[in-house]
Computed example of a mutant assay.
Amino acid sequence: MSFTDKSCLRTPPLARRQRLGFVGGGRGGLVGDWHFAGARLSNHWDVVAGALSSRPDNAVASARDWMIPPQRSYSDFRQMAQVEAARADGIEAVAICTPNWNHAEIAACFLKAGIDVILDKPMTTTMADAKMLVALQRQTGVSLTMTYPYAHHAMVRQARAIVDSGLLGTINQVHLEYLQEWNCGAQPVDTAVWRQDPSKVGRSSIVGDIGTHAHHLLKTMTGLDVSDVRADMFVCGGRKPQPDTAHINLRLSNSAPGLMHLSNATPGQYCGLRIRVWGSGGAVEWDQERPEYLKFTPLEQQEQTFVRGVGNGVLGEAERLVHLPRGHGEALTDAWANLYAEAALVIAARRAGRQAPAGVRLAGAAEGLAGMRFIDGCADSYEAGGAWIKLQHDE
């Protein structure tokens, strides 16, 4: 499958579906449902094993929900890695859908077992653990995929193709926001109490939880890195141990300025991840609550709205991710499916000793580490009273 191939990404180019296991993601959590739905909808995976919960009763019930055989429902991820690695029909990849503080230990266990890892963001809670995973991934040669699903919407790829074509000219400034309302009360909702615990989420709950999505979307859409950050953080919804809001100034790798606004304490905002990119030749604007539309405004020309579909100006890189005609809605589950389809192509190619197909844009260990650098840089800046902090790119 080439960069310009317009065939549906979910049309299986593989001889068979890959075998996938899960750690975490059982009953009571949305994240596991998204991963599971994406894997199944991609048409590239069979979910055959899992250690789905630290609670044995929930693990058994969740395995039954997902039709995982009882003998491949595990009470411990270490046992799962050991047993599955030894089976002739063992899993080829594991999706890790646990809370942040478990990521490093679980991912390391499966990398050492030779099982490819699909890891929910953020990569870990500390830079030391993130660097350990990067080193281990390089040492083992096993792939590590980070799950940033928004980058797998067709119109995000359309925007990147417009940038790559030069139609935006030189990128002069970028504005991002990610606004939610779930954390407005005096106390966080019961299922998210851990998101306010520094020992479990790392140095910044708000940047680690949703800021990493915005950071990765910026790189995906523009191709530019963030070189420097200056962050102010606030508690805007009740009394909490960690800020629920961040205002972040960015300096991009081409020296252009950027601005990021993050909050989960903004009433009336649901899942408002939005990005606007302004260049010397025009602008693009995308809103994940209206993911099928991309606004493109060439300088001093009539603005255009691209609608997800085939033809009518939708470019080849975006068409690869399109599955339904216009008017039949595609949304976040389709983005997850595109992510899992691309992950299957990369993992199957690695296991067969081939190069990954051209045109795949999949976040790996390096992107996971970059996300951790962004979290730490924002935390450093906030703790230093809003000082500019340079992000290191030495790996």
Rank of each mutant, 00 (worst) to 15 (best):
F3Y: 14
K6Q: 12
P12S: 14
G28K: 01
L30Y: 12
H35N: 05
V47Q: 05
V48W: 05
P56F: 00
P56Y: 05
A59K: 00
S62N: 07
R72A: 11
Y74I: 05
F77C: 04
Q79M: 13
A93S: 03
N100R: 12
W101K: 10
N102M: 13
E105M: 06
K112S: 12
A113T: 06
I118R: 07
P122Y: 01
T126N: 02
A130D: 00
K131S: 11
M132Y: 12
A135I: 02
T145D: 15
T145M: 15
H152I: 03
A154E: 01
V163H: 01
G169K: 02
G169I: 06
I171M: 03
Q173M: 11
V174Y: 04
H175Q: 11
Y178E: 08
L179I: 05
L179F: 02
Q180E: 14
C184T: 14
Q187S: 15
R195A: 06
D197F: 03
S204Y: 04
V207S: 00
G208H: 02
D209A: 11
D209Y: 14
I210D: 00
T212N: 06
L218N: 03
T222R: 03
G223Q: 07
L224T: 07
D228Y: 13
D228N: 13
A231P: 06
D232V: 08
V235H: 13
C236P: 01
K240F: 05
Q242P: 09
N249P: 08
N254S: 07
S255Q: 13
A256Q: 01
P257K: 09
G258P: 06
I275F: 04
V277T: 06
W278R: 15
G279Y: 01
G279K: 01
G279S: 08
W286S: 04
D287R: 07
E289Y: 13
P291Y: 05
P291C: 09
P291T: 08
E300H: 15
V310R: 15
N312R: 13
L315P: 02
R320V: 03
P325T: 01
G329N: 15
D334E: 12
A341D: 04
A344F: 04
A344C: 09
A349P: 04
A358I: 07
A365G: 07
R373N: 13
E383D: 11
A384Y: 05
A384L: 04
E395I: 10
